[in-house]
């Protein structure tokens, strides 16, 4: 589904990603962990097509297509979704109108007819109930005045509405209490199938108690320095990132 090959990217001439290699297949859940500043969010942003970052080397293929050559909306049309670490507040744009536009734009991209109003409303209500979102949120402006938890639930709600093939969750657990994490994780799990995949970007292990990963990768200094099973996440939680840092820094000294 997603093949990242030797990806280098940075911002204003400063390199942040230093050759990422990653392969995600349908049905898999991957977690990317790493200390602050390791490049986790940069990777998520580059995949979704944020303009601020410049890709200097490498390639990303999504179902065999060159992902990096597409504008963000085409990536979404192809089935990629990024749950934002900091969802943007847009006063004056109602959540309903926003979602309706997004759903129909993606359908248009895929050559489908716009959803009829009743079916849309029904789907929306179902997904809202799943995410424990109050109906009043829909007539409110997008994310405006939402609490941290409401914003993150709204992200997963959008994901449920758009049904992506690959969902990237960028620090979705940050700032959430345990109940909210459970709701968010539950929403993600319900959307899992053999055809889609999830990439969880997180600093802490706790979200992975609820969204069980098949693979855990540790990102450090813009590279994946270790990959393993979910046990790796537990190990990190126990020992902290320092043990990885020390290991890597030592081995790099040796190599030099």
């Amino acid at each position: 589904m997603l093949t990242i090959h030797n990806l280098h990217a940075g911002i204003e001439g400063k390199e942040i990603l230093n050759g990422i290699n990653l392969e995600i297949k349908p049905g898999e859940v991957h977690a990317i962990m790493g200390p602050n500043g390791s490049g986790k969010s940069t990777l998520a942003s580059v995949l979704a097509g944020r303009k601020d970052f410049e890709v200097t080397e490498g390639s990303v293929e999504f179902f065999g297509k060159d992902l990096l050559g597409m504008p963000p909306e085409k990536r979404a049309g192809e089935g990629l979704f990024l749950a934002f670490q900091y969802p943007v507040e847009i006063p004056g744009l109602s959540t309903t109108n926003f979602i309706k536009t997004a759903v129909n734009e993606i359908r248009k991209y895929r050559g489908e007819e716009p959803m009829d109003a009743l079916a849309f409303l029904k789907l929306m209500k179902e997904q809202m109930a799943m995410m424990d979102i109050d109906q009043s949120l829909l007539s409110r402006s997008l994310n405006e005045g939402f609490s941290g938890g409401e914003k993150k639930r709204n992200e997963i709600f959008q994901m449920a509405m758009l049904k992506p093939k690959l969902a990237i969750l960028d620090e979705t657990d940050s700032g959430l209490d345990i109940d909210a994490i459970r709701i968010v994780a539950n929403g993600v799990n319900k959307l899992r199938s053999k055809d889609n995949a999830v990439l969880v970007v997180t600093h802490y292990q706790r979200l992975l108690d609820y969204i069980i990963p098949d693979f855990v990768h540790v990102l450090y200094n813009g590279r994946i320095v270790r990959s393993g099973s979910k046990k790796l996440a537990l190990e990190l939680e126990e020992k902290g990132y320092d043990f990885i840092k020390n290991e890597i820094d030592v081995s790099e000294e040796v190599n030099q």
């Binding site: 979704a48 097509g49 944020r50 303009k51 504008p71 963000p72 909306e73 990536r75 979404a76 049309g77 979704f81 990024l82 934002f84 969802p87 943007v88 847009i90 006063p91 004056g92 744009l93 109108n97 926003f98 536009t101 997004a102 734009e105 993606i106 991209y109 402006s141 959008q158 758009l162």
Partner: peptide, 30 residues
């Protein structure tokens, strides 16, 4: 126009042109 808002809408499959329209309309709604 708010670039971050633009990226947010585009990341949901909304074309840049329509995303701009939505943001400007939102600005006017006030």
């Amino acid at each position: 126009l708010n670039e971050e808002g633009l990226f947010y809408l585009q990341s949901r499959g909304i074309s840049e042109k329509i995303a701009r329209s939505l943001l400007l309309h939102a600005f006017a709604v006030d």
